[in-house]
Write a protein that binds this DNA or RNA. Structure first.
Lengths: 212, 212
DNA sequence: TTTGGAAAATAAACACTGTTCAGTATATTT
DNA sequence: AAATATACTGAACAGTGTTTATTTTCCAAA
C-alpha cells in the first residue's frame, strides 16, 4: 500500500514496453487475419507467433473482443489512408465517385479486414452500449461531410445528409457483403469473374441516379 | 453384399423415421435460433433439447454446416410465404414496393433467421463450389421476375434485370446488415428507435429514384 | 550485495466447442 | 433362437476463450 516507486524512468520504460507488447500482439493478429483468414486467428495461435504463453495476452487485453477492436482500429486507419490518397478531385461529386471506388477497391484488396470492420460481430462487443463506436468515425465522416457539401451545392438529389450517407454506404456494403458471403454469385448466375464488373456498373448507375 | 432386405414396409417406415428425426432436429435448431440466438445453437444444446446424444445428430447430418443449411431452407420457406401473402398488387412497380417492404419487415421480425440466410458463412460451406445454392432461388427469382416485368413495361430505369435485381437487393441488405451488426446506429448518430424510420425513408427514396 | 516485494510470465485447469469411434443396445432376418 | 444389421451412446480427441495458482524476473531498500 505504501508508495514505493521512485524511479520515474523505469515506470516510463514499463509503460513503453506495455505499449510495445500491445503493438506486437495487434501486428501479429492483423497479419494473421490478412494471411490466414479470420478462422485461424485464435488467442493460442497469436501467442504461438509472438512466442508467449496464451495467458500473457490477457495481461494486455481483457478479452478477445478488445483485441479485435484494436485490430479493427488498425484496419480503419488503412482505409483512411487509402481515402486520403485516392479522393482528391476538385469536384465534390467526383470525390464521391472516387470515395465509392476506393471503398470497393479496399474490400477487394483486404476482404478479411473488411469482414472485421463491417460484418463480424465480435469487435463491437468491446463497445459498451452507452459509449460510442469511434473506429468507424473518420471513414463515416469523410462520406458524410462530402455528402453535406454535395447537398449544399445541389449536386445530389438527397435532402438529408444522414439519409444520403447511409444510402450510398448501404448500397456499396450490400453488394460487397452479399458477395463476400457467397450469396450473390451463387444465386444470380453471374460468374465469379464477372461480379466485380457488375458491381462497378451498378455503383456507376446508382451514382448517376443520385446526381441532381 | 447380398441383398438381404425383403420387407418393404419396414424399410419405408425406417425412411419415414429417419425423415422425422431430421425434422425434429431442424425444428429444435430453428427454435433455438429464434429464441436464444445463433451463439447458443451448438450440437450439444440441440442434442440436449431433443434428448439424444450429440453423436446421434451425426447419424442424420454429416456436419453442422449441413444442418444449418437445412435450417436455412426452412427460413427461406418462411420468407417465401410472407412474400406470397404481402406481394399482391396489380401494378408491378407497387409489387416491387411491397416486396421491399416485406423483406425489411422479415429482417425485423426474424433477425436471427436473416443472419443465417444472408450473413453467416457456415450454411454456405454445405454448398459445394461447383453446385448451385438453391435455398435463395425462390426469393431471388421473385425479385428477378418482377424486375424483368418492370423493365419490359418500362416502369424502372434499369436496362438489365440482373443489375436491377442485385441493386435493389443490395440496397436493402446493406441497410439491414449494417444495422444488425451495430455499425449503423453507433456511427450515424441516428438513435436506435429512429433507425427503422430512416431505413423506410431511404428505401422509399431509392424506389422513387429507380422509377422510370 | 543480499533480501523482500512487486511485477510479469506461465503451466495447468475449467468449461466449452465440433467431431469421431469403439462398444452397446435394439430391431430385423435367417 | 442365433446371426446379423441398424440405432444409439459414452468417451475421447483436438480445438476454443478464459482464469488461477505458481513460478520467474526484475527493481528497490536494508
Amino acid at each position: 500500500m505504501h508508495c514505493k516507486q521512485f524511479n520515474v524512468g523505469i515506470i516510463e520504460r514499463k509503460e513503453r514496453e506495455k505499449a510495445e507488447m500491445r503493438r506486437r500482439i495487434v501486428d501479429v493478429a492483423i497479419k494473421m487475419f490478412v494471411e490466414d483468414g479470420y478462422e485461424k486467428v485464435s488467442i493460442r495461435n497469436i501467442a504461438d507467433k509472438i512466442e508467449y504463453s496464451p495467458a500473457t495476452i490477457y495481461l494486455y487485453y481483457k478479452d478477445k473482443d478488445q483485441l479485435l477492436y484494436d485490430v479493427q482500429t488498425e484496419a480503419f486507419a488503412t482505409l483512411a489512408t487509402e481515402f486520403l490518397q485516392k479522393v482528391n478531385s476538385r469536384d465534390p461529386f467526383k470525390r464521391l465517385e472516387q470515395l465509392a471506388h476506393a471503398y470497393l477497391e479496399f474490400s477487394r484488396n483486404h476482404p478479411e479486414l473488411y469482414d472485421l470492420m463491417f460484418i463480424i460481430k465480435a469487435p463491437m462487443n468491446a463497445v459498451m452500449d452507452e459509449e460510442k463506436w469511434k473506429n468507424g468515425d473518420p471513414a463515416y465522416d469523410a462520406l458524410y461531410n462530402l455528402m453535406q457539401e454535395c447537398i449544399d451545392k445541389k449536386l445530389v438529389k438527397f435532402k438529408n445528409a444522414t439519409v444520403g450517407t447511409l444510402s450510398v454506404w448501404s448500397f456499396a456494403h450490400g453488394f460487397i457483403s452479399l458477395n463476400l458471403r457467397g450469396r450473390c454469385v451463387k444465386v444470380s448466375g453471374v460468374s465469379d469473374e464477372d461480379m466485380p464488373a457488375v458491381m462497378d456498373e451498378a455503383i456507376k448507375e446508382y451514382l448517376r441516379m443520385i446526381k441532381a
